[in-house]
Amino acid sequence: MSLLEPWMMLVVSMVIFGIGLLGLLIRKNLLVMLMCVELMLNGVNLSFVAFSKIHHSLDGHLAVLFVMTVAAAESAVGLGLVIALFRTLRTVDSDQIQILRD
């Protein structure tokens, strides 16, 4: 029995994903929300690694690499959007950004 059992990794990944999701739902600052998204992605990454260990295959690792690349691109685009929004609306509060509503 190794010290780090796969189920423990799964629990940790669930907790990280949960924190990210909760933050995304609760926090109003777009920057923080973006960070929360990153958190969720990393939670999922961790679960991929855990499953990879359980099934003794490298497929999970491969997926993690993909996710990390996409996450990097996503955060770049996301940050760009946030900056653009801030420039036009002078705010990064998600409650005040409702211009697409009507």
Binding site: L25, S94, R101, D102
Partner: peptide, 14 residues
């Protein structure tokens, strides 16, 4: 239902 709040939509999705 369309409140315009992104977080509202997200909650619904979850």
């Amino acid at each position: 239902v369309q409140t315009g709040s992104a977080q509202g939509y997200l909650l619904m999705m979850v």
